[in-house]
Each structure stands twice: as structure tokens, then as C-alpha cells.
Design a protein around this nucleic acid. Structure first.
Lengths: 193, 193
DNA sequence: ATTATCTATAGATCTATAGATAATGC
DNA sequence: ATTATCTATAGATCTATAGATAATGC
């Protein structure tokens, strides 16, 4: 039974990591505090020394889930075509834990409190700006339109591919979208994923 | 207290309609049977004369939610550009009840049982086929790619727009995507939504 | 002395069932 | 006679809190 303050900090972070993963995997309403604490390895009673309420955990855990998207944003800024491939190929893996926060949490966040929804807003703006930057200096007039469309396409394709239990359909969908995006925005013919 | 068989049929359908709306609005896990029955105007005890379990209700209600998409599919087959506008403009309304089943239920269905997931698979195939048909006879080689991309874009844009609480951002996103899709696939410049 | 964690539990809510009631339909 | 609906409740589970225990840190 460790009680040091550094232990507490580590526990706090472990709770957040587990919650961020389970929320993406089973939905924000689909995971109980006791399940999270069991996975962390601490009993339920300890939870409220770390978070004032379940809602407070949700807000922090959603924020953590979006931290994973920061790397993708950087890739999108400088190598957008690679970022597109990465987004679509990650949706092929059955690994819901590492699901992009937009794809797996958007519907749940819509039903959350204002603080949690603000996190979504900020991250959406950042993702759109990253894609826009990745498009470079051509077509200035339509660049924002293109960025919104590309990002919406990635999220939609990923959502639909993860939603279907027909794995072949999922692969065809992701591959089709990948090829079409590259064709339209990079004038490239690419091999299938 | 009506007990006729036609009353029972109507009650059954009312339960399904209410469930289909509330599931889209608050998530499949976010609505209790008692809430649904209260809205229908019948007590909880009556529920199990209509459905063997909650899961059975989910499967039937998801099916009902997707019935609403049949009209859109018909529109997509013969007037795809209008169908695109309709999909994106419906996402502007804050009316979660009438949320397209793909947008609002995909993440929840992913966590449902195989019967429910099959309904999703079938409807996804139908929607993709409808968009493909709507694209007409040009570009046969890339038609499936285009259809998948257009539909994924609609779903993603609708999901993101509904997820954000920044209404201005939602409008800009939907308008951008609408203009870009028309420009890319119909070579049309369209007025904003 | 303080506090991170544990044990235990209160109060709410959820799914599902049992038995009563009051209509339908033979 | 059958059965759609109602009343009541069992059993499970969830959030949150109270008080005990055992470490840390002054």
C-alpha cells in the first residue's frame, strides 16, 4: 500500500490512461468506475481522492484520449499523404483502445457536459488546421474546404469500417477511400493498403 | 387498458419508434427500458410481452432507425447532388432524434451483438450501392471508390458537426464539405447551405 | 499529522420476473 | 380462456461516502 505523493501522481495518470482506453473501446457510458479501478489495481474507494466525480474523470480522460492525436496532427502538417494512410490503416486494426478519439468518442462527447465538449472543439480546430497546413500553398481559396473534406472523410471511413463486422467490406471501404483521396488531392495512384 | 391484438401491434410499434429515437439521441446504453415505456405511456412490466430482452429491442429498434435511411438511398440513386445537400443540412439541425442512423449509432452498434451488427452491414452495403448508382455511368473504374468516399465524407462531416458545440464551426464544416463535394464530383459551384 | 488506499455500505437505478387485474375473443 | 397491462419486487450494479488502516513526511 504505497502512499507517497509521487505514487499518487502515477496512480492518477494510470486511472486516466485506463479510462481513455476503455472509454474509446466500450463508450463513455459503457464503463464503470469500479471496472477502471480494478484494471488499475486499486479498489473503488480510492477513486474519489483523485477525481471529484465521474464527470471530472470523463473530462480529463477525454483530454488524454485526444493527446494521442497530436502526433497525427504533426504528420498531417508535413506529410499529409502519409497521415491519410496512417489514419485509414489504423482503422483496420481491431484495436479499439487506440481508436482515434474523433472516430470513437464523437457521439458520446455530444452527450457530455460543456467542459468535455470544449475539449472536442479545440481538438477539431487543431486537426482541421493541421490538414490545411499539410495541403501547402496551392489552391488557397479552396484549401479550407479541402481540409474539412479530407478530415471528415477520414473520420467517416474509419467510423464505418469499425462499425461493420464484415471485415472484407471494411477493407474494401478503407482501400477505396484511400485511393480516391490520393487520386483527388495528390494526383497519385497508390497501391492498396 | 386496451388488450386487443391490434392494440398490441400498435404498442409494439410505438415502443420501437420511441426506442429508435432515444437510442440515436442518447446512445443505446444511455436509455433505460423504463424511460422508453414511460414515454410510450405503459409501465415497465408490459415490456416483456413485446420483447424477450433488452437486446431483442435493440436489434429491432436499430432496424427501425435504418428504415429512415431508405428514402435517402432512393434520392441518392437518382439525384445524388440533392442527397448530399440533404444529408449535410440535416446535420445542422440539433434534432438528434432524426439523426442518420450511421452517424449516431455506428459506434454503439460496434459494441452490440452479431444480429444487430448484421443490420448495420446490410444497410451500409445498400447505402454504398445507392451512391454508386447515383454517380451514373461515367468513370466506371473509379465509381466504387468515389461512392465509398462520398458516403464516408457525409457520415464523417455529420458526426463532427454534431459533436462540436461550436455552432459556427459546425456550419463552416458542413458548408465547406458540401461545396467541396459538389466541386469535385459534379464540377458545380454551389451557394452555401 | 496527514493522507492514499481499503472495507463496507447507503441510496439510486436497471433488467427481468411473478402474480393480480381487466379487457378481448372464442 | 387468454393475454395485455399493472403493481411489486428480486437481484445486480453503479456512484458516492464514511470510517478504518497503514504508509509518508513534517
Amino acid at each position: 500500500m504505497g502512499h507517497s505523493q509521487s505514487d499518487k501522481l502515477r496512480t492518477h495518470e494510470r486511472i486516466l490512461d485506463v479510462a481513455a482506453n476503455r472509454f474509446r473501446e466500450r463508450g463513455i457510458e459503457g464503463v464503470s468506475i469500479s471496472e477502471i479501478m480494478k484494471e488499475v489495481g486499486i479498489t473503488v474507494g480510492g477513486f474519489y481522492k483523485h477525481f471529484s466525480s465521474r464527470e471530472a474523470l470523463v473530462a480529463e480522460a477525454v483530454s488524454v484520449a485526444f493527446e494521442d492525436t497530436a502526433d497525427w496532427n504533426e504528420l498531417a502538417k508535413y506529410q499529409l499523404n502519409k497521415a491519410i494512410d496512417q489514419y485509414l490503416s489504423s482503422a483496420q486494426h481491431d484495436n479499439l483502445e487506440s481508436c482515434a478519439a474523433f472516430t470513437c468518442l464523437a457521439a458520446d462527447i455530444r452527450r457530455s457536459n460543456p467542459a468535455t465538449r470544449d475539449i472536442f472543439n479545440r481538438n477539431l480546430e487543431e486537426a482541421l488546421a493541421a490538414v490545411e497546413q499539410g495541403l501547402g500553398r496551392n489552391n488557397t481559396a479552396r484549401r479550407a474546404h479541402k481540409a474539412a473534406t479530407i478530415f471528415a472523410t477520414l473520420v467517416g471511413a474509419s467510423l464505418l469500417a469499425r462499425g461493420t463486422s464484415d471485415e472484407k467490406l471494411a477493407r474494401v471501404l478503407l482501400s477505396s477511400v484511400s485511393q480516391e483521396l490520393h487520386f483527388t488531392y495528390f494526383s497519385e495512384i497508390v497501391p492498396s493498403l
